[in-house]
């Protein structure tokens, strides 16, 4: 922590336990800055979502602190925190008949304590984030009438309407097709690099993470195995023991290096050709 005390989001020796697993999350130390896009990766049950919820203040760490701009998250009033940090869970509720424009405007909630209606400034913010997320064309449709990928973009727009400097997304591309996966990750990258926000994404897709994120945090069984750039962390030598799968790499035509899980010889034999 000493090298960057004013990090936008600092995870300061965070630990967390469940009633049946009191020492589940081993101390996690990370320093995340504006303009960075972090991917939290790891196998199922590694603690990715738990870590993201700790960072969002939805759970209290057993020990350690979450630092936002250098101050302890627990000391920040909830509404002020909501103006600095937005969180989007996996599979947010989408099956209710509210107009998309109103769903996006609901993201302005932390900015307005009184009054039934958002003002012109709120509507300008909503309009801008809808343009950014390419959801403007759905404005008059209801949320429940949209496809999964469209609804997810509306939820991202709603989170952005909070005007947070930190955006935490839990598996935003789960259950989306290739095109929407790419569009979400392109958006995430834009937000980080062009809008100078800090975006933290939990994902299972190592290649998307490598391609669009600037930093990787690799978790395995509640332990932080590595943090660093994709090139440093997403190497077969580090990933193989974590996932228990042999990894190869390949290069695509445009020079992008991709990870390719290898089918082990005994399994290969079982697959009818």
């Amino acid at each position: 922590m000493s090298d960057a005390p004013q990090a936008l989001l600092g995870l300061d020796r965070l630990t967390y336990g469940f009633p049946l697993r009191p020492d589940f999350l081993k101390p996690v130390l990370a320093t995340m800055n504006a303009g960075e896009c972090w991917a939290i990766v790891g196998p199922n049950g590694a603690g990715k979502s738990t870590l993201l919820r700790l960072a969002a203040g939805l759970r209290s760490p057993s020990s350690g602190r979450v630092l936002i701009d250098g101050s302890d998250l627990r000391a920040i009033p909830p509404r002020e925190l909501a103006r600095r940090l937005a969180f989007l869970p996996q599979n947010p509720q989408s099956d209710f008949p509210l107009p998309v424009a109103d769903v996006v405007l609901m993201g302005r909630f932390p900015h307005r304590r009184f009054g039934l209606f958002e003002n012109a400034a709120d509507r300008m913010v909503a309009d801008e984030v809808m343009a950014l997320t390419q959801t403007r064309q759905f404005a008059d449709r209801t949320l429940s009438s949209l496809s999964g990928g469209e609804a997810q973009r509306v939820h991202v727009a709603s989170a952005l309407a909070q005007q947070p400097s930190i955006l935490l997304l839990d598996e935003p591309t789960a259950a989306l097709d290739l095109q929407y996966q790419l569009s979400i990750f392109e958006l995430v990258r834009t937000l980080a690099v062009e809008r100078q926000k800090l975006v933290v994404v939990v994902t299972h897709d190592l290649n998307l993470a490598a391609r669009f994120c600037t930093h990787i945090l690799l978790l395995h069984d509640g332990r932080c195995i590595a943090t660093g750039t994709p090139a440093d962390v997403l190497k077969p030598s580090i990933l193989e023991p974590v996932y228990g799968v042999r990894m190869g790499t390949a290069s695509t035509a445009d020079g992008t290096r991709v990870l390719v899980p290898q089918v082990s010889p005994e399994r290969q034999g079982a697959v009818p050709s």
């Binding site: 203040g57 909830p78 989007l88």
Partner: peptide, 20 residues
């Protein structure tokens, strides 16, 4: 009413928008 609107979006979203 406005808090209940947020609550519709789910416990976690409403909590991270400043609702108890």
């Amino acid at each position: 009413a406005r808090s209940l609107n947020q609550y519709m979006m789910g416990d976690e979203i409403s909590a991270t928008r400043g609702i108890n």
